[in-house]
């Protein structure tokens, strides 16, 4: 009898303990909400930054960001204060405005070279942008308790922190981003990109906020073989049985994943990539 009574008392003690913990949960949730409310804000309602920007406008960087955002969407939300005034993400906002407007601003076009102007002209129309940008909406982290015109020091600290903090991407995520960029027309070629060409590795470097050599190193890392890494149904290539094309693609995948140590290897790897693409285009 006493054992039963004790057990019931134990249940109620658990309830009391949980209710006390819930108070801490609430405080933590409130704090998290203040710092991290992410919402979709109409681009037209976003107000310019108060005061002087920490970094000056870079037309080439804005163009590269616009190409990435058009292909991948906005991966990191911009930051606004409680009154929709920009706190961090000037370049990302410039890039979004460029994508949403019919005409590029003078400060941007004047800062681009001939090749970059060709890329500018090739940016997709609004109707081809990923959601929610297509609808003119911008993902934004809103600092609910902040008025950047009053508390400029906090606003600048947030901007500085955002500029130095970079999201860490795993090799798998980098390869996934690379695949998405390739399918959006970015090219894998090494060396200086030709005029008007959208080069993959510099674009990835912009997305990740790292230099191109880091991107190259990650992409050249051998992949752990998994069943999903097998060529995706490469094939109905007319005149050849399926299993033959599959084996050929597996062999090519071995070469595309190699790390080049000299020019001859690099040539083989490039040939393997080109052949794989051709086979995929055939099917």
């Amino acid at each position: 009898m006493k054992r039963n009574t004790d057990a019931r008392a134990g249940l109620l003690a658990g309830l009391t303990a949980g209710t006390v913990q819930a108070e801490t949960d609430k405080r933590m949730a409130d704090a998290a909400d203040r710092g991290k409310m992410v919402a979709l804000v109409p681009a037209a309602l976003i107000r310019p930054r108060h005061g002087i920007a920490l970094r000056s406008g870079r037309p080439g960087h804005v163009l590269a960001l616009a190409e990435n955002i058009a292909a991948l969407g906005l991966l990191s939300p911009i930051t606004l204060d409680a009154h929709n005034r920009l706190v961090a993400g000037q370049h990302r906002l410039d890039a979004i405005k460029l994508l949403l407007s019919a005409e590029a601003p003078d400060w941007l076009t004047e800062g681009l070279d001939a090749g970059e102007r060709e890329r500018l002209a090739a940016l997709p129309p609004v109707a081809e942008l990923p959601e929610p940008l297509r609808a003119g909406m911008v993902p934004a982290r809103i600092m609910i308790g902040l008025d950047s015109t009053v508390d400029a020091a906090t606003a600048m600290a947030i901007e500085a922190a955002e500029n130095t903090a970079r999201q860490q991407y795993s090799p798998a995520e980098v390869r996934n981003l690379a695949a998405r960029l390739r399918s959006a027309g970015f090219r894998d070629a090494d060396g200086r990109p030709k005029k008007g060409e959208k080069a993959l590795k510099p674009a990835l470097a912009v997305v990740m906020g790292v230099d191109v050599s880091t991107v190259r190193r990650i992409l050249n890392q051998p992949k752990k073989p998994t069943p999903q890494d097998e060529p995706e149904k490469p094939a109905q290539v007319s005149g050849f049985p399926h299993h033959a094309v599959l084996r050929l693609c597996r062999a090519l995948a071995y070469f595309t994943d190699l790390k080049p140590t000299n020019k001859a290897d690099a040539d083989v790897i490039r040939a393997a990539i080109v052949l794989t693409e051709k086979i995929n285009n055939l099917s």
């Binding site: 134990g10 949980g18 209710t19 108070e23 949730a29």
Partner: peptide, 16 residues
């Protein structure tokens, strides 16, 4: 479950 630890977890969710 009819267990003190589970009841504590449930109480947190219900309060939330």
């Amino acid at each position: 479950e009819a267990h003190r630890l589970a009841v504590a977890g449930a109480a947190r969710v219900i309060e939330d």
